[in-house]
């Protein structure tokens, strides 16, 4: 359960260039729900995802995940929380181009796993889920956009997080690959993952696999 109450985010607070990105956000997301946050660029949806991922801290308000207050966690605990509970899929994939697919997928495990055999096993399972095993030894820069997306999905799943956050996941994909991603969303649901997608792609409108769609405008939920 993700529980957000009266959450505000102001960038450059107490400065002349202060900017209010999120205003009084209240949002409850139940376990295994798939929620789409829609809004135009700059509306605050990516900021909201980053706060849920503990990448940035809110200026005020509370954020609870599974009854745990995570809004103001210190860096070490926030990093640990992220490493255990959050899988992140980015718009630009954010992979290390020079590394192989399997090494990219293994990146989150570097900090949490010591035994190489366990890393190898988990990486293989994640690559199978994302259907990218056949490219495991290839460098990422040799992959197509769709394959990069699948590599990023495998990386997001490898440490078995229960929350998957997707920031504009189809922005860099053609229609065919975007539809494949939507199919993968169904498998996330089948795995019992809570999925939060920030997007302005109309492909996500009225999807059967999406439980809720939230519209965000000028930092406020409408």
């Amino acid at each position: 359960m993700i529980k957000i109450e009266h959450l505000n985010k102001i960038f450059n607070e107490n400065r002349s260039n202060a900017y209010v990105a999120l205003k009084d956000i209240n949002l409850h997301i139940k376990p295994a729900q798939t929620v789409v946050i829609k809004g135009v660029s700059g509306s605050g949806k990516s900021t909201l995802l980053s706060i849920i991922a503990t990448l940035i801290k809110p200026s005020s308000g509370s954020l609870m995940v599974d009854e745990q207050m995570i809004a103001k966690l210190p860096d070490t605990h926030a990093s640990h929380f992220r490493n255990v509970h959050i899988g992140f899929i980015f718009q630009a994939f954010n992979l290390f181009d020079e590394l192989s697919v399997k090494d990219n997928v293994a990146m989150p495990l570097i900090v949490s796993e010591n035994r190489q055999e366990r890393i190898d096993k988990k990486v293989l399972e994640a690559m199978e889920l994302a259907n990218i095993t056949h490219k495991k030894d290839q460098s990422v820069h040799n992959l197509s956009g769709g394959e990069k997306q699948r590599c990023a999905i495998a990386r997001a799943l490898v440490h078995n997080p229960h929350i998957i956050l997707c920031d504009e996941p189809t922005a860099n994909l053609d229609r065919e690959n975007s539809l494949k991603f939507i199919e993968i969303l169904k498998s996330f649901k089948a795995l019992g993952k809570t999925v939060v997608i920030a997007t302005h792609d109309p492909l996500f409108d009225n999807l059967e696999s999406v439980d809720r769609t939230i519209l965000i405008e000028d930092g406020k939920i409408r």
Binding site: L55, D75, S79, H80, R82, N83, F90, N94, L95, S112
Partner: peptide, 8 residues
């Protein structure tokens, strides 16, 4: 990227 993947 590293920070997003849980590196402190």
């Amino acid at each position: 990227i590293l920070r997003a993947l849980g590196w402190s």
